[in-house]
């Protein structure tokens, strides 16, 4: 493998303290229960090691609670590893959920600026792409209405349209591909593919085996936070299919 190393993950482990995920109140803090060191740990990921080189499209597959989302959080530097190391060379763009930074009281147009700022797009870039974004979102005159009047479909269309203006080096996607109606889905898939052509590395999380088989060069299979397989997409996906009973897994649920 001569192409440069972009993602280097070594022995990655991330845990959640079960106690912490429940309520921590002042009382339990005073009594000392809230931060108890012996609170049971839940390892969302443990001992995960893999490398990703330039030009690869990495699919991540696994059941619910397998640690796929946590892996995305770690790769995008939202969560710091509790064990091991995550090295990512290049600028990471994350599409874990659409329109998370929206302000309900502002117009679609103002929200484009706001969301773009969260994604790290400079204002002048957004200004030059504004018309393109509005056109892509198919919102028309609604763009100057506060988005609390939008339907959820309109909102995610707007979210996707802003994200589509990104020009990422490393792109991390977590099942955000099914946006809007069929026509918009087709359009957004097309846009994603062209984004992928420009990216150095793509990490794609999905439940849909056929979708991953079609797009990915490599695959990573997680189960209960542990790495079950990593390698060429076809091989790993075949293993996964065999292990999961070969059923046509059309689980529509989003990962945790």
């Amino acid at each position: 493998m001569s192409s440069p190393l972009v993602i280097d993950v070594k022995g990655l482990g991330i845990f959640y303290r079960l106690q912490q995920r429940r309520r921590v109140g002042i009382k339990s803090l005073l009594v000392g229960g809230g931060f108890r060191r012996d609170a049971p740990l839940l390892w969302a990921l443990r001992g995960v090691t893999f490398q990703c080189h330039e030009g690869q499209i990495l699919g991540v597959i696994g059941g619910n609670g397998a640690g796929k989302s946590t892996l995305c959080l770690a790769l995008s530097k939202i969560l710091m590893p509790d064990e091991g190391k995550v090295k990512v060379r290049g600028e990471v763009s994350t599409l874990l959920s659409l329109g998370a930074g929206f302000n309900r009281d502002l117009s679609g147009r103002d929200n484009i600026y706001l969301n773009a700022a969260f994604l790290g797009l400079p204002r002048r870039v957004i200004e030059s792409k504004m018309e393109e974004i509005i056109e892509f979102s198919e919102l028309g005159e609604f763009i100057d209405q506060p988005i609390r009047f939008y339907s959820s479909g309109m909102r995610s269309r707007l979210g996707f349209s802003v994200a589509a203006a990104l020009d990422p080096e490393i792109l991390i996607l977590d099942e955000v591909l099914s946006v809007g109606d069929r026509a918009f889905q087709r359009k957004s898939r097309k846009r994603l593919k062209s984004m992928m052509d420009h990216s150095r590395v793509i990490v794609l999380v999905s439940h849909q085996v056929e979708f991953l088989r079609e797009l990915c060069t490599h695959c990573l299979w997680l189960e209960r936070g542990e790495l079950r397989g990593f390698g060429k997409a076809d091989e790993v996906l075949d293993q996964y299919m065999t292990a999961s009973g070969g059923a046509d897994d059309a689980e529509p649920e989003a990962s945790a």
């Binding site: 959080l73 998370a100 930074g101």
Partner: peptide
């Protein structure tokens, strides 16, 4: 929280 867990900033 949804925002914090969705976008690195």
């Amino acid at each position: 929280d949804a925002l914090i867990k969705a976008i690195p900033f």
